[in-house]
């Protein structure tokens, strides 16, 4: 265990964290803004990469491939939204159904192979792990900071618009939203589409970063996304009140998550145990507000008894 091996692994962790931070921003929009736990993202986190890589392997331009990846994610979100609103399936189940069907679809996109590689030497990629220690404009950390900044800017603008406010109202109080003439079903669908579009973008970037897309790339993605959201609300919840800062916090949350993971691996944890660790950490952090609520309730009832 020498510290230099950890330090040399940090740039990679930061770059990965920033990419997953984009994904986590997508999760934040459904989980926190719309108040829906959307499990579609586990599938979408592979779909975006599959579309992007396959299109580029077939000669498409990088930007066109990224755009189509986003659109594919949005379609996945649309399907979950329709399952939920038009067919009355509970949101969490609607997401699971789309996620499952995406497994087949992702394989189909990838020509029924479990993974497809794309080599940075032959293709122009936006981010690649090879440049993670390069000082220059092609460093994936720098590229991801720019991508994240643009994404946060666009989302901040959008959620300040009338339609964005309607989306937030839908997540905050459906009754109120309906009474104010807001079509909450439409809002949920739009929100799911935006969220999954963003996740697919993260997926496409992650596939480029790794130099390959894998059908299992998104497995457990929702947990990583939630971890970032929760880490952000624990660390920055008290200081970040502005919407743009909250999104920034989520991105930083993902970076912190990946740094912690790197440290845990450096301490000698078996890589295969990572998912268990992530799940347990998220479970505990999800429980904390509940426990806090219980504690303060029993405290206040004690006070009443004493009075």
């Amino acid at each position: 265990m020498n510290i230099s091996s950890l330090l040399s692994a940090l740039p990679g962790a930061i770059a990965q964290g920033l990419i997953w931070g984009v994904m986590a921003i997508g999760v934040y929009l459904t989980y926190k803004v719309l108040d829906i736990a959307d499990l579609t993202v586990d599938g979408t986190m592979a779909t975006g990469g599959a579309v992007c890589v396959m299109m580029m392997l077939n000669g498409a331009n990088l930007w066109l491939a990224l755009l189509c990846a986003v659109l594919a994610g949005m379609i996945a979100g649309l399907v979950t939204g329709l399952f939920h609103t038009a067919m009355g399936i509970p949101a969490i189940l609607a997401g699971i159904l789309t996620q499952l069907s995406l497994y087949s679809i992702n394989l189909a996109i990838m020509g029924f192979k479990a993974n497809q590689g794309i080599n940075v030497r032959n293709y122009h990629l936006l981010v690649t792990s090879r440049n993670v220690k390069v000082l220059g404009l092609n460093n994936p950390i720098l590229v991801m900071i720019i991508v994240t900044a643009i994404l946060i800017g666009v989302l901040y603008w959008y959620f300040g618009r009338e339609i964005g406010a309607a989306l937030r109202a839908t997540g905050s109080n459906e009754h109120m939203a309906r009474a104010q003439g807001i079509n909450v079903n439409r809002c949920k669908i739009i929100g799911l589409m935006i969220s999954n579009g963003i996740v697919a973008l993260a997926s496409a970037l992650y596939a480029q970063y790794q130099g390959a897309v894998d059908v299992n790339m998104g497995r457990g993605g929702i947990v990583i996304g939630l971890a970032a959201v929760i880490i952000s609300s624990v660390i920055f919840g008290k200081i970040f009140h502005n919407f743009a800062l909250k999104l920034l916090g989520v991105s930083l949350g993902a970076v912190i998550y990946y740094i912690v993971i790197q440290i845990v691996l450096w301490l000698g944890l078996n890589t295969n145990m990572l998912k268990l660790l992530s799940a347990l950490v998220v479970a505990i952090f999800l429980a904390i507000p509940y426990w806090k609520g219980k504690l303060s309730k029993s405290k206040s009832s004690k006070e009443v008894r004493n009075a």
């Binding site: 618009r161 339609i163 406010a165 104010q180 003439g181 807001i182």
Partner: peptide, 14 residues
């Protein structure tokens, strides 16, 4: 939000 009840909600400022 209440002010815009009955109106189409688009990309104008919230």
């Amino acid at each position: 939000l209440a002010k815009r009840r009955g109106q189409k909600r688009g990309l104008k400022p919230g």
